[in-house]
């Protein structure tokens, strides 16, 4: 009876862990997609920022390499570290949104001297 109970508990725990990991992965993928859309929008407005997703950027470290924020999100996701993957995907999304806002606000920029 005890053996059956512990087997059931282990199985439940495993199912819980797997479903939690799947949920993290899904949340990360959603954030990643939103970050791409936000940065596409910023690019279209001419206001993309340097470190959001540029291949030449060396802003965030993942393993022994430095890369853009979105690339770092992908790097951490590939390692299964969804906590950091989501953190950087959120950061990249935020940079895209701010870059877009900035470009719109500066649309009529001109001299003030």
């Amino acid at each position: 009876m005890k053996q059956l109970l512990s087997t059931v508990l282990v199985a439940l725990l495993a199912v819980g862990m797997i479903s939690s990991a799947l949920a993290d992965e899904a949340a990360y993928k959603k954030l990643h997609a939103e970050a791409v859309v936000a940065n596409d929008k910023a690019k279209e407005a001419g206001g993309e920022w340097r470190d959001a997703r540029d291949k030449k950027s060396k802003f965030i470290e993942c393993g022994d390499k430095k890369m853009s924020i979105l690339h770092a999100a992908e790097c951490y996701a590939a390692k299964g570290d969804y906590k950091n993957a989501m953190k950087y995907a959120e950061m990249a999304k935020s940079q895209g949104e701010l870059g877009y806002q900035q470009a719109i606000q500066q649309k009529n920029a001109g001299p003030r001297h």
Binding site: G47, Q95, Q102, A103, Q106, N108, R112, H113
Partner: peptide, 21 residues
Amino acid sequence: RQFFYAKRGQLNLSCADCHVY
């Protein structure tokens, strides 16, 4: 001209911020 005077990037600086003002 708009490019020159528009603030851009995470540092929110325009060409003019450095090279005029």
